[in-house]
Design a protein around this nucleic acid. Sequence first.
DNA 1: ACATACCTTACTATAATTGTCAAGTATGCA
DNA 2: TGCATACTTGACAATTATAGTAAGGTATGT
Lengths: 154, 154
Amino acid sequence: MRLSTRAQYAVRAMVDLSLYSEGRPVSLKEISRREEIPLNYLEQLFFRLKKGQIVTSVRGPGGGYVLARQESAIKVGEIVETVEEQLSPVACLDEGDRSCRRGARCLTHTVWQGLGERIKGFLDSITLADLTREARTRPAGGGDNEKGVCQPTG
Amino acid sequence: MRLSTRAQYAVRAMVDLSLYSEGRPVSLKEISRREEIPLNYLEQLFFRLKKGQIVTSVRGPGGGYVLARQESAIKVGEIVETVEEQLSPVACLDEGDRSCRRGARCLTHTVWQGLGERIKGFLDSITLADLTREARTRPAGGGDNEKGVCQPTG
DNA sequence: ACATACCTTACTATAATTGTCAAGTATGCA
DNA sequence: TGCATACTTGACAATTATAGTAAGGTATGT
Ligand code: FES
Ligand code: FES
């Protein structure tokens, strides 16, 4: 039941982008340095995030990425769903799956279905604004992890 | 965010055990045949389930496994937690993890923590009795999956 | 004794994930 | 125009986790 590190990275990167962008584009190089995420890996993530219309890109020197919408209109659930292949706990919940008959026949299906709904519901109840608001009111104290995010390995 | 098939198997097997046991022990061979789960794999699962004190075993001919408690006292969350290595969505939530400092510093931690609590809370709100009750009131109609469970691959 | 059925460890194959590499395209600026 | 920046995209290797197999052992009822 682990979240992929991709998803954790993506949320961290989005928080970083949101915190450091003041209207201007933020380059992946910056994010990579601050968050200690491999640049090439970030590129893959943002490729997906762009397709998911969560960010837009500006090419060329001085370019980078910008939020596609306001912080308050970007849900954590969206970010996770965009970079993860599937957010649902079991395969039969996915769109287009026909391998087992649902409905009244399957006892356990409703359990996993309910679980999936809770997960999505919870993650969709939190926006980027919720996360950055906290960071802004709390001026970065010292320490090696000053912006308040951490490695997914721990 | 996928549940392991181990967990799905385990819940299915426990439902099966619960449905077919009428006080007497149920052998893994039976469950294996009905649920089409490899016997050796079931043995591994029940090894864990026994350690988790969810079932007890009776050895020798005519032996098998019995629920350690009443159906209504066995939560789905317990079963999943017992056979999965970890139920929490990120590593830093696990017991004994010291790799990153929690508390006020980490912005995203509270999100994953909240998520983990929802997941566990939901799965703990459902008991084996909830699942079998439904099956008992609905006398097995024909079909190839008569007891109302299905393969995790679909 | 013998058959049943649980107990336990070890191992392998397969898939998913993580992360790297490399080559390309668009753009701003001197 | 030429160059540096930085996004774009696909392919791929390394690592890890999972699923499943195998085999031998132990307890117990008949
Ligand atoms: S149909 Fe979804 S778990 Fe059975
Ligand atoms: S301390 Fe848990 S996610 Fe950062």
